[in-house]
Amino acid sequence: MPGATITPIPDCQLTWVFGLLELLEDRGGREDGYKIARDLQFKFGDLLKVMKAAEILGLVSTPAGDVVLEELGKQFLAGDVNQRKLLIREQLKKHPLFSYFVRLLHGQEDRSLSKEVVLEHLAMLLPSEPPQRMFSTLVNWGRFAELFGYNKDEDRFYLDQE
């Protein structure tokens, strides 16, 4: 999506997103967000991040404070671990922030960048977000989807092989 506005991704673990989907499935596909937070003893602010992350990935919708399991979320639940990874990978490729880095890495000779350079890009793209935190999320989601890798020893943020 060249030229699309770059939006941040919530500081949230993907495992939380998957837990939310499992929980929605158990509860018939729809539940009040506030009730979920209360039942799980989650801070409502944290649960909002999870809801937002799941929505960005197209797995749920959040009408009027409820969380509703969407078709893609059901597909995710029906898949095995590798089908799940593939689904997340396809969704991330469509996200402007991830696609920005995919393009950027493609332009590098060895398909990699140092963390410092990535942080600079993040600071420039999303000045109001803490870059360090955004980097961790980028790496964690990217690793799960096998889209990005990060090698701490060699300080290399890189494009995972297709």
Binding site: Q13, T15, V81, N82, K85, N140, A145, G149
Partner: peptide
């Protein structure tokens, strides 16, 4: 592969969430 850790092979525990 079975536990869904593909992509995390060279990560250190410190970089991981509790679930991972």
């Amino acid at each position: 592969d079975k536990v869904g850790l593909d992509g995390f092979e060279e990560a250190y525990p410190r970089e991981l969430s509790g679930g991972m």
